[in-house]
Design a protein around this nucleic acid. Structure first.
Lengths: 118, 118
DNA sequence: ACAACAATTAGCCAATTGCCTAAGTTTATT
DNA sequence: AATAAACTTAGGCAATTGGCTAATTGTTGT
């Protein structure tokens, strides 16, 4: 049976977290959360030469956080939330394990108190 | 009124995402989710010189994802989930905005269909 | 045809990252 | 007192990152 529900390639997580580790790129994601936009529209808020900004976009696309297509001379970009969700799930999982531990600690402490009462 | 519920400094998010953008450091977080450990205990699974590994730990500590204290010659490390939660919340917020948009799109499409029926 | 627009490519640069080895410091252990 | 253990510091190196300018490509408006 092929593994359709593939867990994310660790390398993908590398790229997603790397992409999010920059305020310019996070701001682009925030903008794109509200809907698609062209490259120059996305670039406008930033005090940066266009080629520099384009590198950020490239990082976002290569991480899978953004997709784009070109029509005529305009490239339109769109957020892709699949990878972002994978990152969120990785974090949630860590916390779940951690909280599982705290729960066991809580149970342990309760058990300890019961023992002390007897 | 002072702003007690400080939203995370963007620079903190930079550091947290940067810290998570490396498989070694994510593996350390996963290990620490299960409980504290010493430096050499953490380093053992990795085929890497100790000073190299220590740099990874330093990145994790400086991002606030890990705290540590030294007793005698042993440094014990512990996961700190505050920063991790901030990162998770940033992602969740983006998705919320995105999904809000999809909801409005859904409402729009419904309204459009009603219009077409009339 | 040609000018303007939107994006892209090429190439340069300084700073940062991620690894290494070698040597040092501070506790234990015998 | 000497050795071993557990880090820690210093310094070197190649690759990557994040910025720039200048020049180019492809598309649209006049």
């Amino acid at each position: 049976m092929p593994n359709y529900q593939q867990s994310p390639d660790p390398h993908d997580l590398d790229n997603v977290f790397q992409a999010l580790a920059d305020p310019t790129r996070r701001a682009v994601m925030t903008r794109l959360s509200e809907g698609p936009a062209s490259v120059s529209e996305l670039a406008k808020p930033f005090d940066m030469a266009l080629p520099s900004f384009l590198q950020h976009l490239k990082v976002l696309e290569e991480s899978g956080l953004v997709s784009s297509k070109k029509q005529g001379r305009v490239r339109t970009c769109e957020a892709q939330f699949k990878r972002l969700s994978e990152a969120e799930e990785w974090i949630a999982h860590q916390r779940a394990v951690w909280e599982g531990r705290l729960d066991r600690l809580g149970a342990y402490l309760e058990a300890l108190q019961s023992t002390e009462k007897e």
